[in-house]
Design a protein around this nucleic acid. Sequence first.
DNA 1: ATACCTGTTTCCCG
DNA 2: CCGGGAAACAGGTA
Length: 264
Amino acid sequence: MPELAEVAYACSLWNKGLKKSIKQVEIKERARVFRDTDVRKFVEFLEGTTLLKSATHGKQMLFSFSNKIWIGIHLGMTGSLSIQEANYESKKHDVLIIRQTKQVLVFTDPRQFGRIRIHQGSQEPPWWSELPIGMLDDSFQVDFLINTILRHPRKPIKALLLDQRYFLGMGNWMADEVLWRSKLYPGQRSGKLSEQQIRILFEKILFVVNGAMGSVGKHGGDPPKGWLFHVRWKDGGICPKTGTILKREKIGGRTTCWSPSLQI
DNA sequence: ATACCTGTTTCCCG
DNA sequence: CCGGGAAACAGGTA
């Protein structure tokens, strides 16, 4: 379930392993999650190091270890991190198992749309440091949104929100949530939005981002009551604002849920 | 058995 | 160049 806040929560699950050394590492070498990685020295690089720091940026995670080792993880569609007891035995879809004395850090991904990278060097890896600004950064301001829209005036606003060059961590349900709160039809061409609509959109992006980080990002689970999130998954859902029936259709290549009576 | 899926990438088309 | 649409990735679930 990995969008911005779920990724932040998943990352925090491994915090129990901070400052602790790595006793043993197991990987599923032939798993597709290693497609960008030279897997030969992966285990050798990691064993004996200490987990020093974790961070997320959008849907990306970065873990830094001693000996100048860095690992990047993207959860894809079905990836998840967990923390397990020391006697944990590997399960079918586990792709990375990091054993410490008192606990085990596990990355599992049945569909293998996720991704693991490893890097050795005193600087952060380029695939991390070259990421664009995130929605939680100070420099994410309404002007950034205005400029992004100016660059893609013909793109439906839903598709634009899902573009990871601009809205790092925005996923399908967050985009629907933002547009619902902004009273915008997801298929609306971005360039058609008025300045006032863009300002509201920006405000709602921050609301959803902060709301999700404060709930899902901190404790896992679901966003607060009253969010579209709770009714957007199946046909027949009712709009929490208007009480009318929600529509579900593919927009920008993804199943989109919106309230026709509310979103123009 | 069939359809669907909180993500990304690639390819083809207009 | 831009954007849509479909397919691919690979498995779980309804």
